[in-house]
Design a protein around this nucleic acid. Structure first.
Lengths: 212, 212, 212, 212
DNA sequence: CATGAATGAGGGTTCATTCAT
DNA sequence: TATGAATGAACCCTCATTCAT
């Protein structure tokens, strides 16, 4: 009956809060199992308020995905534009970042790989891929110039490399398989060297060097 | 409207009918938007009958996926075991079959790639991948023996090639892009030749030869 | 048919309305045969509104039972605390009130005794008994002090008397038997007098006096 | 498709098997939660077979209740007709038997008292009560003749005593309370002695004497 | 007597979205 | 901008019972 205290906030802030809550809940229970009522409860706001900021439930998902993609794109750009690294180093860094996809959000990888979050996976992939491909392409071109790679079609090679890392990364959702992947890292890198026309063994050196 | 005579059938047959109907509806409207009531109406059977054969709605999806995977696996095996073809030919055939994933079910590709069917995609991929990897691996080994390929780690190469074709295939869901892909086929094959250590241009020849 | 204007009400009021409707329908058709859709239709409210106030159908039953028990408990307390009556008078009043259990809800007795409402019966009995026993116990103690009763173990006597009236009351569900019970009232009271150590015939006098 | 081996049995035997299975399941899960399919599965018989013996699910409940009542009635009759015992002894034996109501079926008491089995409770009570009252009445009359009791209205006294023991027994469903009840046994018996006009303490002696 | 596939009404519940305040 | 009560469509599933064989 009594409206309760009406707290107005900067719309941007409110919206961000809602996306934050949504993200946390999506991680916890998945998109489908997260109710709008869950989100507003977490923020401490009325049901209707949600619809002042998003036209539908799907729109938060969209907004969340956008945010994630933006962060990711920035990260990519930073690596790409780093003048102090050669193409091979950049390549390793990008691969690593894109494999985790998380940018500090460690749970995200699991989130993405859980079956019930397939849609989210799709949304993210569709949005991230273009910038990822672009970045990869440019790094490959840099590598060509540096004489490290020998790639006639950089764009296609970029796509191929992405496909390869994704395919190997897929199995990685199971934590148990991580060590196995590590074991076969050498073999995978051998393949990538072939694709990029790099000298055998050079990638592995860089991987080791860049630690972790 | 009125009951009509009660028609009993061999359970196997009934079950197949239900999966058939489910498949058609999943194609048409997606899994989530297909109601159990839709399925039974299509078969002309009572609602309860459905639950005689499946414990839940998800179980038909499972059954459908299994069926698809089985058919696919058989197809793979046939190609793999064909004594009249060399590794390169088999490779082309497998790629093509796995790209369409459909085995004659033309709409299936779309079905799988529509966002709302992401879960189905996941389910299928998870199930198909192992047999696909195995087949690819053995064909690569055959290629090694035939002197067509030069692959030190056949299994990893198989996975990589799968990743590559998947990545390129992904864009293919939009019909508009098909021609673009065709254009870049040559480039893609170049990459695959590198991965498999095949002579440049040999794949393209086989692709052309095996028509389309 | 068409929506009509949306009418918001004080939640307390809405909830009460729903319980009222539920009660009426439980009386009419029993708990099992009352659908949630019946209840909301009666109130003129949407199906979902019901679940704004009760988590499940059973919860209305619970709420209804609670309400009944509360009313009943208040009634008991009033009689118990009435300073103007002696123990015997109170005893008669309590017996009567507890026999009808209805507090003005005449159909309730039938409701409770119909076989299909056995669960309701159980729920009510379990909840009412404690306060009923307490009240009876205290009245018996008062009677002891007043020299009307001679009861060594008031609590046990209270329980016993309850058992007795319940057993006789049980048959009362059939209206046809009511006269028979009346006939044997004298005999029943004789027994109760024995239990309470009251003088023979005193109860009957009070029953007549307090009319009916 | 193939009918499976068709095992014919003496109808009486089959029916008994079905009631047995029903009883076990009712004990385990309650009447409502026991499906006809559960029963037939337990017996290893087809769904339709059930309906050759019972017109409905409720009819097994009925049949089961009847069987229980019959056994109980026989037990009562035996005690009642025992020429070697006086009324007080018989009284104790009957009370004990009726309290357990189980006739060797130990779980039955719990079964009856669980809320979800309220209906069964009702059915049994309704059926058992008459014979129980009759037996009690005749024993009381015997007691009158033997000079042990002094009861002007045996039938009413029988009903009263039943009510008393039922009320006390009700709490007994919780195993935890059993000891408490034992403690207050003396007090309860004091009340019963009053109702039956027996000499104070005589019941307790018989209870002790008849062991347990 | 027996089978077991088929029936189909029925009901509780969820939740994204709206709207009167 | 905010509230939160109200909406209502939609859906999955159970299970007692029937009936063609």
């Amino acid at each position: 009956m009594n409206p309760g205290p009406r707290i107005s906030k900067d719309p941007e802030v409110r919206k961000e809060e809602l996306i934050d809550a949504a993200e946390a809940l999506f991680e916890e229970k998945g998109y489908d199992d997260t109710a709008v009522s869950d989100i507003v409860r977490k923020v401490g706001v009325a049901q209707g308020t949600f619809y002042l900021y998003f036209r539908s439930k799907e729109e938060v998902l969209e907004a969340f995905a956008d945010r994630l993609v933006n962060e990711f794109t920035v990260k990519m750009r930073e690596i790409e534009d780093d003048p102090g690294r050669n193409a091979m180093e950049k390549f390793v860094l990008i691969t690593r970042a894109s494999l985790s996809l998380t940018v500090g959000r460690e749970k995200m990888t699991d989130l993405i790989h859980e079956e019930r979050n397939a849609i989210l996976h799709y949304k993210l992939e569709k949005r991230m891929l273009p910038s990822l491909i672009n970045t990869f392409t440019r790094v490959i071109e840099q590598g060509n110039r540096e004489g490290l790679f020998d790639v006639p079609y950089p764009r296609e090679a970029a796509i191929a490399v992405l496909g390869i890392s994704q395919q190997f990364g897929e199995g990685t959702s199971d934590h148990t398989m991580k060590s196995i992947v590590m074991e076969s890292l050498e073999r995978i890198l051998d393949i990538i060297e072939r694709v990029l026309g790099a000298k055998k063994g050079t990638f592995l050196d860089h991987y080791k060097e860049l630690g972790r």
